[in-house]
Amino acid sequence: MKWATRAGIHIDRAACAWLIGRFIDSDAEFVYVTDPAHVPADATPFDMRGAELGHHHGDCSFETILRVHHLTEDPALRRIAQIVHEADIEDERFDAPEAPGLDVVLRGLSMTGDDTRTMAVAGPVFDGLYAYYRHAATLGRDPA
């Protein structure tokens, strides 16, 4: 399936693309557009104004996708959602001290490469975060 989002990806879009590729559509193909009018007709838009999979009711797009695709039972994804929320919206709804650090890492990545590279680097980062919070959920405490 084709998925489209705005070019110049940052934390929420990078996390969403990782989530889509890992949990929703293993054959996902991503298109980055500069104008909402350029979304291909056969693509599902996300993290864009007017899209179902966007910011709604105070949630960021990652949280919206979790809800729409019934992935909220996974505690590791829920934790990543809180971090992405705080990095993206910064409204202090969640206590996520990881957020400012991750935000800076992603901003720096987008300064040194294009969206394809940001995604290539961000993928393993989110895989790692997911493994860490899976482990944390099993232990009931921070793994290290």
């Binding site: 104004r49 007017g50 966007g54 910011h55 709604h56 009711h57 105070g58 919206i89």
Partner: peptide, 8 residues
């Protein structure tokens, strides 16, 4: 996103 919220 604020614009989106206003629309919502």
């Amino acid at each position: 996103w604020i614009a989106e919220e206003v629309t919502d």
